[in-house]
């Protein structure tokens, strides 16, 4: 032992032991256990029975699973596109122009991101209520509608509402991330462009946007990873008396909600684990696609210039 500790680099092992013990026991082992159990029929009580790839075969024909995939993508995309537009646009304006109260606005826009998503879901479940909801009361008061809209009773409205909440919770974070990216772009690029007679509109498209690519990939991938796992808001927003888990016509049944329901409400652990692995595969495949296409294009363009 003494000899081992005589080499200072061996302390590296000692320092990482607690972290990696916890890492392998609480993170890696459960992931592989989930993989193992996804080939089993297991209800949590009686012994697990090996069923091969039956659980995965079932995924392809399970209309609720397919619906959950579509729902998750719809919720993510409808929220993500405006989140990118607002994030980029405002980050550019905040960085390139002197705007009074910039830090105040930015902090306020970011605030919803920190909130307990379960509480936000519960809050919007009430704010979007049919008669008691503030949104309907406001729309009626200013005369935009005569009859209250039953937001959480309609599949299209409730899915769009969850997207809007996601936008509301994340566009402020996107502004901060893009502002950090813009700050890293040397001021001289803009000066040079200005001397060449480029307008600020040109500067945005020709300088800011291309140089923000790494940050854009980062935002896209982290948002995809988070968006595919969306659970708290769709789970809590529909806990009203009329609406069951999954929302009207299962429009809020996301992959994560379906996984939770299958594994822990119906105690079908094996199939639930298979749903989780499918969710993971979707994340991996699309993350790789994003890296591949966005990175590759960049190199291609550089190659052409030579």
């Amino acid at each position: 032992m003494r000899k081992f500790l005589f080499n200072k680099n061996n302390y590296g092992y000692i320092f990482i032991i607690p972290f990696f013990a916890s890492f392998f026991i609480f993170l890696i082992y459960p992931v592989f256990y989930s993989l193992y159990i996804s080939f089993m029929q297991y209800d949590g009580i009686s012994p697990a029975v090996f069923v091969g790839i039956d659980n995965y075969k079932r995924l392809i024909t399970d209309k609720f699973f397919i619906k959950s995939v579509i729902n998750t993508w719809r919720i993510w995309l409808v929220g993500f596109i405006p989140q990118m537009i607002f994030g980029l646009g405002l980050a550019y304006l905040f960085s390139r122009f002197r705007i009074k109260g910039r830090n105040f606005f930015r902090a306020l826009y970011y605030l919803p991101n920190l909130m307990t998503a379960a509480a936000i879901g519960a809050l919007f479940g009430m704010v979007l209520g049919r008669k008691s909801g503030a949104v309907n009361q406001l729309l009626i008061k200013i005369g935009l509608i005569d009859e209250p809209i039953f937001f959480l009773g309609s599949p299209v409205w409730s899915s769009t509402a969850v997207s809007a909440i996601q936008w509301w919770m994340f566009f402020g974070l996107t502004i901060i991330l893009f502002m950090a990216g813009i700050k890293a772009i040397p001021e001289t690029y803009y000066e040079a462009a200005s001397i060449d007679g480029a307008s600020s509109w040109d500067a945005f498209w020709r300088i800011t946007l291309p140089l923000l690519k790494p940050i854009m990939i980062y935002v896209l991938v982290t948002s995809l990873i988070g968006g595919m796992q969306i659970f708290d808001v769709p789970f809590t927003i529909t806990k009203g008396p009329v609406i069951e888990i999954g929302g009207p016509q299962k429009s809020l049944l996301t992959m994560a909600v379906y996984m939770y329901n299958t594994a822990f409400n119906y105690n079908n652990r094996g199939y639930g684990a298979a749903v989780a692995w499918a969710l993971f595969l979707i994340i991996v495949i699309f993350s790789i696609l994003i890296f591949y296409f966005l990175r590759n294009k960049d190199y291609g363009r550089r190659g052409n210039r030579k």
Binding site: I25, F26, L27, Y29, P30, V31, F32, Y33, S34, I37, I225, M228, Q229, F231, M255, A256, M259, Y260, A263, F264, R269, G272, A273, V275, A276, W277, L279, F280, I283
Partner: peptide, 12 residues
Amino acid sequence: PIQLGLVGYYQL
């Protein structure tokens, strides 16, 4: 995703 280890962590 956190869901991936959920069943395994519960069993553990």
